[in-house]
Design a protein around this nucleic acid. Structure first.
Lengths: 335, 335
DNA sequence: CTGAAAGCGCTTACAG
DNA sequence: CTGAAAGCGCTTACAG
């Protein structure tokens, strides 16, 4: 076992000062080529690596970014995290992950802890509970401590911070228009997240796309049984020709109801869901979905945060980036 | 904005020394109650929190744990991470996430970086490529630097480190026996991960459970089309009565083939998959699955690592914990 | 009971 | 070109 060697030990072995070693390893022009050579040789022989904790203390930064995730089992957030991690690596930064489990209490604890200075900046998607109760004191707490914060995905909260999100409204506007252009008249919507911001935006897009004389058909509920009942009414009684689903639960539930009621997808019912690619492609039939480009969202979030950290943005003015979605057609929208 | 206050500033305001402040905040018996009181009051007034980077430097530790994940979109690993994060929080530790994307090269970079001392210990599930090529030098690199490593989930590599995994072999042994007990004779297996350790263990469990005179029926391939073709043969020509699927891909593919061939699940074909609860419950029909208790795996992994870090285990002897799986029956195994 | 000093491992302005 | 010194923010053995 090679125990980690320090600058001091290296200096002693070389009979030079610690400062000389440090400068040599940083290619300082102050150091003679000969000395630099000697130092580097021994350093690489001993596999010297500077202690990051010491470097960070000296530089008054941590080199890490805190990411707060409401629910990691949600494949969307998992992919966002993946994009963040990849981008952070490029900048030599570490990603510390915190999972709020959609709980305000947990989110408060996390934010509170982050004010101690564990991270150089924070990326957060607020929990459902936080959105519902609209309590944002803990976020202001971070801002008070001058810790840069970028809000991602769930961005319509009116907070004074940089934001990056997905074009939720337009995605459903476009999807609805797509069906109308195909001549469908009864276009429905199902949602288990109608009570949260992103759900509302998607619904808004749907409603905007309908003409004044179009009726809207909505099945919304957070309770599976209730949602199922409502979707069943839409499909069997109202006989909608297409259904837009704002989330995983409602999309799967719609598939299920169609299966149970022997409604053929896509012949009798077209379906579009807000679900992730790996699942959409594997469903039976495969489900047309709205691609949100989560990895891109993640990597861009890191970049916005880093720009903020490096003072590249004007203070008091906030960035807001919206990522365009893509409607991907699979079997469930085959005409 | 409250800029972070330091011990030194606090000391100056109180007209005492830095040492006194530090001791007072740590409830040292050396300090008079009166002074302690004064110090704590001012500290809480200014919301003082020790700079974690400085504390860590002093204590020669980082307070963080590195977690290497092959694929975060895999819901199993997402849940494992969630369990790790929750447990780490209990110990006041931070989780730094690294995603290898099943790439040996990336995994090497990560391990190499971790030797610099970013973390107190590492939890790793090695990538598929690493397993296939059986190159473990980078892991020995970590061990050389005396960084504690716990290998999770993909544990049958013969490496000198603590391990925690799932009882892959027994899970499929039990599942096969279950079908046999129900009187089924043609029990098949489908796999897209037959080339990696955990896949092999699951297959082994299946084979062990078959009597000498039972035939085995296997459809294995990493290529979707090829796998589909083979599953189709099993279902339509061999007419297996039940199918055990070792992974998400094969489970979904089996559902799909059954659908396309108009084979009714569970009437004509029983299905069990190694997929996660949230997906299993939502499929149509819902898919009986093997629960691996990923969160428990995650939290136990943290505990093993911490025990190792704290020297609670004998060095040179390694822990190996196996978590028992549970077979959860949903619609696809209804008799 | 309080404080000066050393030190964790590094970087960098300054002196020589 | 090299090194002594100060300092990042903290903790703790030691002296008084």
């Amino acid at each position: 076992m090679k125990s980690k060697i320090t600058l001091k030990e290296l200096a002693k072995l070389l009979n030079v000062s610690v400062s000389t070693v440090s400068k040599a390893l940083h290619d300082s022009p102050e150091i003679s080529p000969k000395t630099a050579e000697r130092v580097k040789e021994l350093a690489s022989l001993h596999n010297y690596k500077p202690n990051p904790v010491a470097v960070n203390l000296k530089k008054s930064k941590t080199g890490t970014i805190g990411v707060v995730i409401p629910n990691i089992s949600n494949s969307f957030f998992a992919r966002v995290l993946s994009g963040m991690e990849a981008e952070a690596q490029k900048h030599g930064q570490q990603v510390i992950t915190y999972i709020s489990n959609e709980s305000l209490e947990r989110e408060k604890q996390i934010c509170d802890m982050l004010t101690s200075g564990f991270v150089d900046g924070v990326l957060i998607a607020v929990s459902e509970e936080t959105q519902k109760k609209q309590i944002y004191d803990h976020l202001f707490g971070l801002l008070d401590y001058d810790i840069p914060v970028v809000i991602y995905d769930r961005i319509n909260l009116g907070l004074p911070a940089d934001k990056i999100g997905v074009d939720d409204e337009k995605s459903f506007y476009d999807a609805t228009k797509f069906f109308k252009a195909k001549g469908l008249e009864k276009i429905g919507l199902a949602s288990a997240i109608h009570h949260v911001g992103i759900g509302q935006l998607r619904i808004k897009g749907y409603e905007k796309a309908l003409q004044k004389d179009d009726s809207s058909f909505m099945a919304t509920s957070t309770k599976p049984d209730d949602l199922k009942r409502k979707i069943k009414i839409l499909i069997t009684e109202e006989k909608v020709e297409a259904l837009l689903c704002t989330d995983f639960e409602s999309a799967i539930m719609a598939t299920r109801v169609a299966y149970e009621e022997k409604i053929n997808i896509p012949k009798d019912l077209k379906l579009i869901g807000y679900i992730s690619k790996d699942i959409a492609e594997f469903l039976t039939p495969s489900l047309s979905y709205i691609e949100q480009h989560p990895q891109e969202l993640g990597s861009n979030a890191i970049n916005i945060l880093n720009n903020r950290i490096e003072g590249k943005y004007q203070s008091g003015k906030f960035e807001e980036e919206i990522i365009a979605t893509t409607l991907v057609h699979l079997e469930s929208t085959r005409f």
